[in-house]
């Protein structure tokens, strides 16, 4: 669905995006992660033809961009760096104007499509209120509705839950999961690890303009080969296991072993009261921190 090859964007002497090879497959829920200023937004803008790449190539839905933008973009729904609308018009009027502005949205079905999109994002009853009277969350929902208007095959969303309350975040997540089940590929750019972890199947991590990690989420969160044991008999367990214990914190021990079940049996036989035992998995946060540098918005003294 999205494939970039050696994508580079330079602004004068600054290289914002430096050789990014994205690979988003059909049906993916792809999480695009990176600290602020890492080149995330510039990449998204290049995908959509807003910013022109210095070098490298982009393919969207199998077609070269931005050359085939007129053909490709009607099948793409996008939310880029926050929603935007004409404040003096109602949400519905904004969607009408946007849909009428380009091709690929039949006039006969416009009303029905707008109603359906507003319903999907939970704005069905918003009425004729002008957008300037909307809350941030409502604007975000309106932006999502605009992205969904033509039932796109690919959704490119930049921070889509910005400004939503926890309830709203869950609603949007469920909406995206449902759309994905129905066949929409979702490309989600965010700096919120939890959001990506809760929603995505694949992740790409950018740092200082480079793609430093791109893999299935399940692979990124692979077991570390250690087992976490919780017990009140810490000293006893440590004596029993000897050098296999790699770390002890209060009632929590990290034990290197491939077989959690055997470890459990050994501990119980040894008289250790085990309160909890589970293979340790790498968190997405660990993986990201391991491959990225300090936030690029941090200014060292």
């Amino acid at each position: 669905m999205i494939r970039t090859t050696a994508l580079v964007k330079r602004y004068g002497g600054v290289t914002a995006v430096d050789g990014v090879d994205l690979d988003v497959r059909e049906g993916d829920r792809y999480g695009f992660l990176g600290p602020n200023g890492s080149g995330k937004t510039t990449t998204v803008r290049m995908l959509l033809g807003l910013v022109l790449a210095t070098s490298g190539s982009i393919e969207l839905l199998g077609q070269p961009m931005p050359r085939r933008a007129g053909r490709v973009l009607p099948e793409v729904g996008a939310l880029v760096e926050g929603p935007a609308a004409y404040g003096h018009l109602s949400g519905r009027a904004n969607l009408q104007l946007l849909d009428a502005a380009g091709r690929g949205g039949s006039r006969r079905t416009r009303r029905a499509r707008i109603d359906a999109a507003l319903e999907q994002v939970g704005l069905a009853a918003v009425g004729r209120r002008p957008v300037k009277a909307y809350s941030l969350g409502m604007r975000q929902r309106l932006g999502l509705a605009a992205a969904l208007l033509r039932s796109p095959r690919l959704l490119v969303l930049d921070e889509p839950t910005n400004g939503l309350d926890p309830q709203g975040i869950r609603e949007v997540r469920e909406l995206l999961l449902q759309l994905n089940r129905e066949g929409t590929t979702v490309f989600l750019s965010s700096h919120l690890l939890a959001e990506i972890e809760a929603l995505c199947t694949r992740v790409g991590v950018v740092d200082r303009g480079r793609l430093v990690l791109q893999d299935e989420l399940s692979v990124v969160q692979a077991p570390t080969g250690r087992v976490e044991v919780r017990t009140a008999d810490g000293p006893l367990a440590a004596r029993l296991l000897g050098a296999r214990v790699e770390d002890v914190q209060d009632d929590r021990l990290l034990v290197r072993t491939a077989d959690a079940a055997a470890l459990n049996a050994e501990l119980v036989t040894g008289g250790v009261r085990v309160a909890g035992l589970a293979p340790e998995r790498r968190t997405l946060e660990d993986a990201v921190v391991a491959v990225t540098s300090a936030g690029s918005d941090r200014v060292a003294s």
């Binding site: 803008r45 933008a69 973009l73 793409v76 880029v80 935007a84 004409y86």
Partner: peptide
């Protein structure tokens, strides 16, 4: 300035 330009261009409008 209103941010609507990017949404017009990805609508897409040439």
């Amino acid at each position: 300035q209103a941010g609507t330009l990017r949404y017009l261009l990805v609508r897409p409008v040439s």
